[in-house]
């Protein structure tokens, strides 16, 4: 389907995210846990990044900080001209509303709204959204617009979640274990949808997972462990999602 995943890695543009010495500490004294222990990263426009690491490595904490759901204890976290480390609650809300699309492991759809309404809910408050129907068409759900979450399979629900995340044309798409609750075949379909959104909308996309197989679909793979970037590498070219297996 998306066999033409061969977009070159772009590094010339200024980074969307600039992260320096990012630290997040939970608790005090003896119970102190360094979830992030000094992370340095630059993330660029249009990149598809897979963040790999075992559970407890701090990758979700990093994603939460990038998405404005949490603020770091120390270090620098810049999103373009915005200093997210010092942003207040309202600025973070505005940031999430305007710039970030989230995709979660457990879909987190509003059960009382249909697929179309779940997407429209977000497009109503966005600055420059695409029509909800178009977003759902993009994830091949044009025929299930008026179904409620309970009437959809897990894969379909996750695709609604993707449509919801991309409908507002976000600048960054953050995906936390998007296939974690799905079987392989359904997972592939979901990842294809994410990759397509990244390609067609040019959205900086970060996928976190502990599934190393997914590294192949990325422009750049960042290995994470103990709250630090262990190492990273660039794929010379993205592998087609349909070829992934786990």
């Amino acid at each position: 389907m998306f066999s033409g995943d061969t977009i070159p890695v772009r590094t010339a543009t200024p980074p969307v995210y600039s992260v320096r010495g990012l630290t997040k500490v939970y608790g005090f004294g003896e119970t102190e846990v360094h979830a992030l222990a000094g992370v340095d990263l630059d993330l660029h426009e249009g990149e598809l990044i897979v963040l790999l690491g075992p559970s407890g490595s701090g990758k979700t904490t990093l994603l939460n900080n990038l998405g404005g759901l949490d603020v770091p204890t120390a270090g620098e976290l810049r999103y373009r001209d915005t200093d997210l480390a010092c942003a207040d609650e309202d600025q973070l809300t505005r940031f999430r509303r305007d710039s970030v699309g989230f995709i979660f492991q457990f879909y987190n759809l509003i059960p009382s709204l249909t697929a179309r309404e779940n997407v429209a809910l977000i497009t109503e408050i966005a600055r420059d959204p695409m029509p909800a129907e178009d977003a759902l068409e993009l994830v091949h759900l044009g025929a299930r617009l008026d179904h409620f979450p309970a009437q959809l399979s897990g894969g379909e629900q996750q695709r609604v979640a993707i449509a919801r995340a991309i409908a507002k044309r976000p600048e960054v798409l953050l995906c936390d274990e998007p296939t974690g609750a799905l079987d392989v075949r359904t997972g592939i379909v979901v990842l294809e949808a994410i990759a397509r959104a990244n390609r067609e909308l040019g959205t900086l996309t970060i996928i976190i997972t502990h599934n190393a197989v997914m590294a192949g679909m990325a422009d750049r793979v960042i290995h994470f462990s103990d709250g630090r970037v262990l190492h990273e590498h660039r794929n010379p070219q993205r592998a087609p999602v349909s070829g992934l297996e786990w």
Partner: peptide, 12 residues
């Protein structure tokens, strides 16, 4: 559900 709304950008 309500937390999700907050996460995706709804204000309090």
């Amino acid at each position: 559900e309500l937390a999700t709304l907050r996460v995706v950008g709804f204000s309090r």
